[in-house]
């Protein structure tokens, strides 16, 4: 009898597990877009942007403006929002960050500046859009069953977008000259400088791409969680950190794998524990990685 009960629970567990995997894939998609954006910028500039979460928030609210106020299609709104966020990201680098780099401000000060920026931007969004919950008016689309996994058409689009973007990032890094320059700056900034990499252009591009991915991630995140506030990005930021650090900070491919791991583990665990605590699981992974493999679990040697 004892055995019977266990068997029943196990068969139940398997479908629960698969359901969690389904959710995990969607979260991983959102997370991958966001994490690659953060880690690309880190790779080139070599400091963490603590205002990155707010880039997501800005993207989400811009898309809200385009879709709910200007009545555009949600995916078109997403694209416009991402492009605008890219511009804002570029501008922030030029206006706020660059003056500090020119004066060779210490890393500590630079990090304080980005956190000040995050406070400014989040509250700026809140001042304009208000603190209450917002929601896109979109239809989640038809229900698609893949085994016990249930997706909406919208969710499948999100997964598709992530796959396309990751492929584009891969092609960019692997085959274009500027992408190779980005990688070389990430691997060895001094060597890149000596060997004539156009630092300014690469840096500009890194902020543009980072902002674009952040803006886009913000929109798909907002779709995924259905309703959002100006704290959307700042609350998601440390899950992005977890994915980025798991993959080795500054390493785009690592960030993709990290996103997959964190996405799957948090959503699968949410099937078994109160889903309010799934961020705790991401946090636990972050702590374990920092304690035992601070260079990331997919990298052999680190830049820590």
């Amino acid at each position: 009898m004892e055995w019977n009960k266990r068997a029943r629970r196990e068969s139940c567990d398997v479908s629960l597990l698969l359901m969690g995997v389904g959710f995990g894939l969607i979260t991983a998609s959102v997370l991958a877009i966001a994490s690659v954006g953060l880690t690309l910028q880190f790779g080139v500039t070599n400091f963490v942007n603590f205002a990155y979460g707010e880039f997501l928030t800005i993207g989400a609210y811009l898309a809200y403006f385009f879709s709910a106020v200007a009545n555009l299609n949600i995916w078109l709104s997403m694209l416009l929002a991402a492009l605008l966020t890219a511009g804002i990201s570029w501008l922030i680098n030029r206006v706020v960050i660059q003056p500090f780099l020119k004066r060779k401000a210490p890393l500590l000060i630079l990090l304080v500046v980005t956190i000040g920026l995050s406070l400014f931007l989040e509250n700026g969004v809140q001042a304009i859009a208000g603190p209450s919950f917002q929601q896109y008016v979109t239809a989640p689309g038809a229900i698609v069953n893949i085994g016990p996994m249930i997706f909406t058409a919208q969710q499948l689009v999100i997964v598709g977008i992530a796959i396309v973007l990751m492929t584009v990032v891969h092609l960019l890094l692997k085959y274009t000259r500027i992408g190779k320059a980005m990688r070389s700056m990430s691997d060895d900034p001094d060597l890149a400088r000596i060997s004539g990499v156009p630092i300014q252009r690469v840096t500009d591009l890194a902020w543009l791409i980072s902002g674009f991915l952040a803006g886009l991630a913000g929109v798909v995140l907002a779709i995924n969680v259905t309703s959002f506030t100006p704290a959307l990005g700042s609350q998601f930021l440390f899950i992005i950190f977890a994915a980025v650090i798991v993959g080795g900070i500054g390493r785009p491919y690592g960030a993709m794998l990290g996103a997959l791991l964190i996405g799957l583990v948090t959503e699968v665990s949410a099937m078994y524990i109160d889903s309010a605590y799934k961020t705790v699981v991401a946090f636990a992974i972050l702590v374990i990685v920092l304690l035992f493999r601070p260079q990331g679990i997919f990298t052999s040697r680190g830049r820590v």
């Binding site: 706020v96 003056p99 500090f100 401000a105 000060i109 304080v112 500046v113 956190i115 000040g116 920026l117 995050s118 406070l119 400014f120 931007l121 989040e122 509250n123 700026g124 809140q126 001042a127 208000g130 603190p131």
Partner: peptide
């Protein structure tokens, strides 16, 4: 926007951090 004052305060603190650092 019941939190407008709070939001503006937050923006001001953020700006102050950046300006002080600068």
């Amino acid at each position: 926007n019941p939190l407008l004052a709070v939001s503006i305060r937050g923006m001001a603190i953020g700006l102050l951090l950046i300006l002080a650092a600068r």
